[in-house]
Write a protein that binds this DNA or RNA. Sequence first.
DNA 1: TAATAGCATTAGTATAATGCTAATTCATGA
DNA 2: TCATGAATTAGCATTATACTAATGCTATTA
Lengths: 136, 136
Amino acid sequence: MTKLTNNVSKRERDCLILLKEESRGDFPMRLHEIASTMHIKPPTALNIIRRLKSKGFVDAQDGMVKLTNSGDSLSKSILMVHRTFESLFCQSGVPESRACKEAGEIDFLINRENAMKVLKRIDSPAACPHGKPIKV
Amino acid sequence: MTKLTNNVSKRERDCLILLKEESRGDFPMRLHEIASTMHIKPPTALNIIRRLKSKGFVDAQDGMVKLTNSGDSLSKSILMVHRTFESLFCQSGVPESRACKEAGEIDFLINRENAMKVLKRIDSPAACPHGKPIKV
DNA sequence: TAATAGCATTAGTATAATGCTAATTCATGA
DNA sequence: TCATGAATTAGCATTATACTAATGCTATTA
């Protein structure tokens, strides 16, 4: 596969973001919850979780899955990039939902520092179109 | 793999762009030339070429490889996106070579229409940092 | 307590993309 | 004619992605 900046694949990215956004506080997610949200079967989800675990981004035990500190900061970083580009697309006139989708395809591929520069270039909006803060 | 907007993978993208930029006029490229430029072995290059052929983006015969009309317009489209984002990164203060690399990771994933909107948002530069025209 | 329901996990399979080496074929020029 | 260079084939490996079927485990309920 392509060599990735953060060393996560698309589905691993999806899973990280899911964990970051769905887990309220320290409350971990269950495997079957992850699977159904991602529209995949539990064994497939388990596979993704396993890869994330081997990379040190999640802790998983008996189907309870949560981000490690490292996974948490990676998620934050990806979300920052995501919201930056989402904002760019929206400012450019791309409808919100398409902007979000488009940003999701690239947010895990773009270097954090470069995204922060882009954020300044587009006038440092404080929040993405959904109202979520960009700098976490 | 991820479902891609243009239905090409990273290496297929690399190969398309190579063919677009290296072929002078109708002059096709040789397989071994493609392979060495891409830093891969001929059989690996052949594989990529075969996939591109099956998607209708190149014609290949006896190691002579050239873009079809469809491959040519896809390349143009990817290059437009590439130069747009390269310009964005440069305008943001990312050094030219890193801007180019970063753009290359995402140019084949981003929708043409959305990129055109972004181009307007960043003041419609006529050329990318290397001086190549953005709207081909 | 024993059965079952629900969830996790294992095993096995498949596909696509990416890459390699070794062997073979084929044409061309010395 | 023979050697060289190039393309191609065959075979293999890895990673990411996804599935089904079978198994295991736990906790609740009848």
